[in-house]
Design a protein around this nucleic acid. Structure first.
Length: 213
DNA sequence: AAAGCGCACAACCGCAGCCTG
DNA sequence: ACAGGCTGCGGTTGTGCGCTT
């Protein structure tokens, strides 16, 4: 799908992780010229990237209003509600979560919520196949709610989800621990009061200073 | 201490729709 | 009306890192 960025001159296209230098070039360029046609921007800024790649990097990572770090329980609930309503319309869902990107929400859904749901579905089918265990599990069941409802009913926020306790998923506690163990430089990026995490231009610049660039 | 494993996330890919000449 | 280019979106993959054994 991505054609060569320029027909007249076969410029090599870089792929893979963005370097700090590339980030800086992109930030500087957009700061002075603003966003525009991404293919032109990539060329004009001297980045050996496709416009598409620049756009993605900017929207998902470099934009100053991008909010990074833990998804809060409130956001988690909202994601589940909106997903139940709209399905995998990530960009639509993202519009209702200021500072969150569709990519972030999509990743969050796939790695945390979907896995959580799958586990519960497995547990549910296990219950079905082993009815003799129902009594034992009645008090300690990991099922979110009512064990006699279908799984999708269980998941749907419009039905029984609202009655369930919104506990952090297993990964979330781990995340908190991980964040506490982050390198000082990383901590500067992600740690903010109230568990709010932002990546700002100031952060970027101060990192540049730290790195002696 | 080191190897293997699993998780989380950044980035890429392909497609569809829109816009413009 | 049509073709080419650009953007946006959703799905998928690659990789780095932490945890476990």
């Amino acid at each position: 799908m991505d054609k060569k960025p320029c027909k007249s001159q076969d410029v090599e296209v870089r792929k893979g992780p963005w370097t700090m230098e590339e980030d800086l070039i992109l930030i500087n360029y957009i700061a002075t010229h603003g966003e525009g046609v991404w293919n032109n921007l990539a060329r004009a800024a001297g980045l050996k990237r496709t416009g598409k790649s620049c756009r993605l990097r900017w929207l998902n990572y470099l934009r100053p209003d991008v909010r990074r770090g833990n998804i809060t329980p409130e956001e988690q609930l909202l994601i589940m509600e909106l997903h139940a309503k709209w399905g995998n319309r990530w960009s639509k869902i993202a519009k209702h979560l200021p500072g969150r990107t569709d990519n972030e929400i999509k990743n969050y859904w796939r790695t945390r919520i979907q896995k959580h749901i799958n586990k519960q579905a497995e547990a549910f089918s296990f219950h079905i196949s082993t009815p003799e265990l129902l009594d034992h599990h009645a008090s300690t069941s990991q099922l979110p709610c009512n064990g006699s409802t279908s799984f999708m009913e269980t998941y749907s926020p419009m039905s029984s989800f609202n009655h369930c306790n919104l506990e952090p998923f297993p990964g979330q506690q781990q995340e908190v621990q991980q964040q506490q163990q982050l390198q000082p430089q990383q901590q500067h990026i992600v740690d903010q009061p109230n568990n709010e995490s932002y990546w700002s231009m100031e952060d970027f610049w101060s990192m540049q200073l730290l790195n002696g660039d």
